[in-house]
Each structure stands twice: as C-alpha cells, then as structure tokens.
C-alpha cells in the first residue's frame, strides 16, 4: 500500500477554498474563522470529538448548511445564496452520509440514475449503463433491481457512493460513512473509498477510522470547539501531535 500511496498525485489546482468562514446555530457559534484550501487530488480526513463542527464544516461546502460569514469557493464557483449556483455546485460535489440517505421507494438502479437523468438530462439508457459501471466498481451489480431496504448497511453505503459517482463529481464528501455500520461491513466500504482515492478523486472524509486516515489521507485535520486545532501529514499527526487537545483525543481513541 505504501507504493500505492506514492502514486497519489496532488496538484496545485485549488478545488475548494474556504476563507474566514463563520457559522452560528441561533446564538451558538459552531464554526469559528475556518480557513481551508483543498487542492485537487487531496484526500483529507477530518477528525475530532463529537460536536466539534466537523460534519457542519463539510456540509457547508455543498450548502446543506448555510454559512453566515466568510467565503466558500468550490471549483471556482462562489457559493452564494443564489439557488442556481447551489444546484450547480451540488451536482459537482458528491456526498455520502452516515445514514446513507438512499431513496427507499426506488430500486438501486433508479437511485443511481435519478440525478443523472433529471439534473444532467442524460438519456435513460446511457444513465443506466453508467450506473451499472459504478455498481460494478463498488462490487454490487447483482443488487441493481433490489430496493435499499433489502440490502445490508455496508451494501447500502456502497450504493450511496455509486449514486454519487454517477453524477461524475470532481469532489467527494464523506460524512462519517462507516459510523452506522457493523464492524464486519466497515471494511467493504473503506475498500471502496481507498480505491476511489487511488484514482485521484479529491476527497474530504469526516471519519474516526484512523487506519484509513494513515493509509489514504495526505492531510489530517483535527477540529475542536468549531475551529481547526491542528493539521498535518498523517505520519506526523499520529506520531507527533503538537497540541495538547490533539494528544488527548488521540490517546482516547487509540488507547485500546
């Protein structure tokens, strides 16, 4: 795997730029002065205690949450309250959720073809071919005609990844994709994500899978109390954490 990691290329083209972003829930200040630049091809793992704002941060990137101050630029498009821009950005940025959020009334194949057909206006036939291609990639083409409720959690999450990929996104966001899964299924999802990373997809993952972070990430960000406390290369981050808060966090999650 060490060789594979070397192959990962990070360009100096900016994919996401977040400048002085602040967000409040009512009077609660969730995100404080976030500054983050993500380059194309980067695999960033965001970790931190619950309530530290890491999910909120990546949800701001595709405007599932609104930020009140600061500037977010995704793929050169400035994220404003204009609905046109938001839909354009969302169709370029794929997202996987903790609870998959598959559409239970549609078959797996329909889940995957829905957005390409309606947003990208791709003919049904072509969309189905693309969908089958990505379902093969996540290794569950045989489930195409089933419904989400008939699949295991790990399979559902892989469908969710395939569904996002069908939109041919340039950036993928993962919001704790393995947190709701049984231990036996975590690996199959992580394998899919690793494969994706090796193909050069720009990824931001909120996750507690530190093994994944070590293996895939080129940068680990540690958040606490709505701010970025520390970021570094995985080796440095895990072996030589600088901040006291990070040390405490790492000792707690790696302690047993």
């Amino acid at each position: 795997m060490a060789n594979a990691k070397k192959k990962l290329i990070v360009s100096d083209e900016v994919a996401i730029q977040i400048e002085n972003m602040n967000k409040w829930y009512g009077s609660f200040h969730v995100l404080k002065d976030i500054n983050l630049t993500v380059y194309r091809g980067e695999r960033i793992v965001v970790c931190g205690p619950s309530g530290s704002g890491k999910s909120t941060l990546i949800r701001c990137v595709n405007a599932l949450e609104e930020h009140q101050e600061g500037k977010i630029t995704v793929d050169g498009t400035h994220l404003s309250s204009d609905l046109k821009n938001i839909d354009a950005i969302r169709s370029e940025v794929g997202m996987c959720f903790q609870h998959f959020n598959l559409f239970p009334h549609l078959s797996i194949l329909e889940n995957c073809t829905l957005a390409p057909i309606w947003v990208r206006k791709i003919p049904k036939k072509e969309a189905e071919e693309t969908a089958m291609h990505f379902l093969e990639k996540v290794k569950i083409p045989e489930q195409a005609d089933k419904y989400p409720g008939q699949l295991s959690g790990g399979q559902q999450q892989r469908v969710a990844i395939a569904r996002s990929l069908c939109m041919q996104p340039r950036i993928m966001l993962f919001d704790e994709p393995t947190s709701a899964l049984d231990p036996e299924m975590i690996k199959e999802v992580l394998d899919t994500m690793i494969e994706l990373a090796e193909e050069g997809m720009t990824m931001i993952c909120v996750t507690h899978e530190m093994g994944f972070a070590r293996q895939v990430a080129n940068r680990v960000i540690f958040m606490d109390a709505g701010q970025i406390v520390e970021q570094n290369e995985p080796e440095q981050f895990f072996n030589n954490p600088q901040s006291e808060r990070t040390q405490l966090f790492l000792s707690q999650i790696l302690g047993h």
Partner: peptide, 12 residues
Amino acid sequence: GQYEGADSLGLD
C-alpha cells in the same frame, strides 16, 4: 436525510 440526499445530488 431524504431531503438532504435529494439536495446533495443537485435536484432542485
């Protein structure tokens, strides 16, 4: 999550 799932795919 259903609203978010739909939103995240760019559906209006």
